[in-house]
Design a protein around this nucleic acid. Structure first.
Lengths: 158, 158
DNA sequence: GCTATTTATATCGTTCACGATGCAAAAGTA
DNA sequence: TACTTTTGCATCGTGAACGATATAAATAGC
């Protein structure tokens, strides 16, 4: 019989405590940081994943869905509906590929391109927002190589 | 007129590139790491956020919803449905508080307590899984204080 | 004691993530 | 050429996150 005593006396595995979970920190940090972007995105009428798609397309316009999915390390079952919403919002077009008619070529509309101007200030604003609240910027940058190794190791099916 | 030339020639803000986004790394790392837990959770019939709730309750049984929400830095509009699903799955009970009838006291069922045994191996398994794929463990641990500062700075309404 | 405000939880709608599955076009193979 | 497999994308269902809003109970102010 599992009783109250058990919960409290025997549940003392240090590793099974929230405070000791790296994963919970990553999960929370990711949520809070994307949350910090919210004011800017709300103003632009986009969401965080939509911003990521725009970043990809601003770097290189007219890419098939699979390229975008690869870059974001997401699957098409996440990306397709995302792109459909962005198309409906007038940010992109999704036209069939010419050589390979299975592919969908995603291209920025004028509105999607114009949004680049509004986005210009976001990185600096965010740096300031976060620096003001956490004090640290150096340390954050130092995490990058570690996060990259982690991502590189855990992503698969390239 | 915004044209193709513009995208490619003038969109050269280094900060507006996916590769330079700390946020994208956090978002991706969090997704991939929780993904690494999936095999274990699938076996147990739970999800990652449900695991977090269990961690909280294993540490201290019988807590009101707001306590759990505070610990996880989530709002009740996320936690309530989560707890409802866990109740339906037989992991917890949600009873009304006695002094304050507004509160819902969340308590582990025997099944929820018993699941602690199955969870015992998860942290070690995951450490091994991730170490095998990324090689690094030291570095991951070194991120913890930085993530904590970030989280502490960005969370509000305690 | 009575209204005003706050608190604890819940509901609703929208947008992700993601496993499972479907489908048609392309590529490979006999 | 006919057949099989792979690829690229889409659809469906479920479970989060989260903004907005609702509701009832508790608390505060008068």
């Amino acid at each position: 019989m599992v009783n109250d005593q058990m919960v409290n006396e025997f549940m003392d595995n240090e590793q099974l405590k929230l405070e000791n979970q790296l994963c919970f920190r990553l999960y929370t940090a990711a949520r809070l940081v994307t949350g910090a972007y919210q004011p800017y995105f709300a103003q632009m009428g986009i969401t965080y994943p939509q911003y990521l798609v725009l970043l990809v397309l601003w770097g290189q316009d007219k890419q098939p869905v699979c390229e975008i999915a690869n870059r974001l390390l997401l699957d098409t079952n996440t990306v397709t509906p995302l792109l459909q919403r962005m198309e409906k919002a007038g940010l992109i077009t999704r036209t069939r590929g010419k050589e390979d008619t299975r592919t969908r070529i995603v291209a920025l509309t004028d509105q999607g391109k114009a949004m680049y101007e509004q986005a210009q200030r976001i990185p600096d604003c965010l740096k300031r927002d976060i620096a003001l609240k956490t004090g640290e910027e150096e340390e954050l940058i130092q995490m990058i190589p570690t996060l990259d190794k982690l991502i590189e190791g855990l992503k698969r099916k390239q």
